[in-house]
């Protein structure tokens, strides 16, 4: 089936079986590799991206539901010249180790901050349920609070750089 959507600000049309997970369309057909495969069962969060501003685990999101939606991946969140506050905070706190889980965490965090600009530790515990095997959680928590701070200093930056 043919499906059109907006991804990182660009309109795309793909022709693909309707139950194909969005993750594979993004990685293999659109060649955006920042969104990761970890489990394929919505259990790890490595594939987290935004659909209409909500954090979604794209491995378990059939492409048919993407029709007309606005999708943002880590590549659209920000870039070196214009990083999203979450990315800026991740750089300041030097969060990543292996790095594989990190796009998923940053996308989950960006969606959290968009709804809750000043999350408490409890909010973070309840919302950020992704898995990081390198266990970079200690710096992640610091980075999430720092990102909240940065976003408040520069509220326009919280808009995704698409």
């Amino acid at each position: 089936m043919k499906i059109s959507f907006l991804i990182n600000g660009t309109k795309k049309m793909v022709e693909v079986a309707e139950n194909t997970p969005l993750l594979w369309v993004i990685r293999d057909m659109l060649d955006l590799k920042g969104t990761k495969f970890g489990c394929g069962k919505a259990a790890c969060g490595a594939c987290t991206l935004h659909i209409d501003g909500n954090a979604i685990r794209s491995c378990s999101y059939p492409i048919q539901f993407a029709e007309g939606k606005e999708i943002t991946t880590i590549e659209g969140l920000g870039n070196e010249a214009n990083p999203h506050p979450v990315q800026q905070a991740w750089i300041e706190e030097i969060v990543p180790q292996c790095g594989y889980c990190q796009p998923g965490f940053m996308m989950a965090t960006a969606a959290l901050l968009a709804k809750n600009p000043n999350p408490t530790d409890e909010d973070i515990d309840a919302t950020i349920t992704n898995v990081c095997r390198c266990a970079t959680y200690f710096r992640m928590r610091k980075a999430i609070h720092r990102a909240a701070e940065l976003a408040q200093i520069n509220p326009e930056n919280i808009e995704e750089n698409v």
């Binding site: 590799k33 920042g34 990761k36 030097i94």
Partner: peptide
Amino acid sequence: VARVDLKDKVFGAPIFGMDAT
């Protein structure tokens, strides 16, 4: 000093085996 791979990992560069094409 900051990790040399920091930016690649923060901006989602295709650096892993899974990303190869």
